[in-house]
Simulated assay, not measured.
Amino acid sequence: MSHTLNKVAVVGAGLVGSGWAIVFARGGATVRLYDASEAIRARAMDRLASMLADMQEAGLVEDAAPILARITLCHSLEEAVATADYIQESVLERVEVKREACGQIAAAMREDAIVGSSSSGIPASAFTEDLPKRARFLIAHPVNPPHLVPLVELVPAPWTDASIIPVLRAAMEDWGQAPIEVKGEIEGFILNRLQGALLNEAWALYEAGLASAADIDRTVSEGLGLRWAFMGPFETIDLNAPGGIADYSARLAPLYHRVAESRRDPQPWSAKAIEQAEAERRSLLPQDQLQARGDWRNRRLMALVAHLRTQPR
């Protein structure tokens, strides 16, 4: 690796933390993994072995064994973070939980270590303001599962040392991730604001009775999502008109403006619509099959990632 972040700690060994541990170890770093829950720690290495075995079967890693060997399970937070160059905090998405965990990390970490939080939408300023080493903290938000979906949003707090962002961005690239920099704090960052816009429209269409949840899902999985698997919205519209993005905008910007105007009074997702969607989804996928379907999703992601790696960009 060309960067200097070769010793990594992951605090939180749930789904996201486990995925992060694989990302770093797969990229060649030595990883020390910790979780405050004894029950989670007890099964962490078995979970990692299973995840890596699936990746090896899908052709995403050549040999799972050396990757797993680079991950060490720790039984205290201090043991995990004390010598780390980089620390990935992946605890529960609640301000008070993150504030407590980051306080413990700040007390045990090196002065020059960098700490990224896996927060999905809570800005770092909400839980790092009072930390003595707050300049070393920022958001490093992955997409779940991070070992299969490479995007990482790097979001500094107002007091984050600006010099650490290019260092971490380069390291993430070397670890096989696809980092982006969000140039200011905004709730939801980039990914969840884009996802939220689609979700809010999906709920509005569903509540209006214009389509079933299954058909709205199909519109994305069999339509929009096929293009979005390898290009974003700006490139999509640039290729969807003979004259490129300016031509597309001349043709369709008024339509999109009218659509936006029609949602000038957005409403919360209603309890009734949520109940109906829950009933529809459970008729298609019983509660006790959610985990198995999640595993199926991950296998599909592995196959897609493996395919995309063979294609020119």
Rank of each mutant, 00 (worst) to 15 (best):
N240H: 11
A29E: 08
V23L: 07
R309H: 15
F230V: 12
A65E: 14
L15F: 09
R297M: 14
A157W: 03
S270G: 00
A107F: 09
V155W: 00
R264T: 13
A113C: 11
A58K: 07
S18R: 14
I245R: 10
Q177Y: 01
S37M: 11
M302T: 08
R41V: 04
G196S: 13
G243D: 09
A44N: 05
L284F: 05
E78W: 06
C102M: 15
L33D: 05
L131D: 03
P179H: 01
Q177C: 12
R299P: 06
L92E: 02
D174P: 00
K272F: 01
R300W: 06
A53Q: 11
A197P: 02
E78L: 07
E57Y: 05
A44T: 02
S2Q: 05
A44H: 05
Q291P: 01
G12N: 09
L301T: 07
I180D: 02
A80V: 03
A44G: 05
E222L: 12
G27S: 03
E79P: 06
H257D: 14
E280V: 04
G184L: 07
C74R: 03
H257Q: 12
C74Y: 00
W159R: 00
D63C: 09
I180E: 02
M231W: 06
V8R: 01
S212E: 14
P233D: 10
R136I: 07
L301Q: 12
E79V: 12
Q291K: 12
L131V: 08
I71E: 03
I216V: 15
A157R: 00
D85F: 14
D130G: 15
T219C: 12
W296L: 15
N298F: 01
E96G: 10
I22H: 02
R227Q: 09
L252T: 11
S18Y: 03
A157C: 07
Q287F: 06
E275K: 08
M109E: 03
S262L: 11
G121P: 00
R218K: 15
I180V: 15
R293L: 06
K183Y: 08
A126M: 06
L33P: 00
E185H: 08
N200D: 07
E93I: 08
F189R: 02
P146K: 04
R99V: 06
E278T: 13
Y256L: 06
I216G: 12
E280M: 04
M172H: 04
L290G: 04
L199K: 09
M51I: 04
G176E: 03
E62G: 14
R110W: 03
S249R: 12
W203E: 01
A279E: 10
V143L: 15
G244K: 12
R297A: 14
V143S: 06
M55I: 01
